[in-house]
Amino acid sequence: MKVTINGQEVQLPEQVQTISGIRKHFNIEQALTIIEQNKKIVDKNKYDSQALSDGDRIEIVHFVGGG
């Protein structure tokens, strides 16, 4: 499926079907992030169940802590 992540079009492998799948695919499971799907922030407890659809606009904000 094709989604837009942080403004860039990305072709996801077939096994990536949820928000958790995205976190795993991009190896950011350990990163502090807030994730938005089509302008709605996804509840962290729903990452496993929140299904992706073709054309979704995903925004991933990394909570970086340096200063």
Binding site: Q30, L32, K44
Partner: peptide
């Protein structure tokens, strides 16, 4: 409020 929304992370040092 914001941190509470994020999944727990072990990655405290990058």
């Amino acid at each position: 409020c914001l941190m509470n929304h994020m999944p727990f992370s072990n990655d405290s040092c990058d």
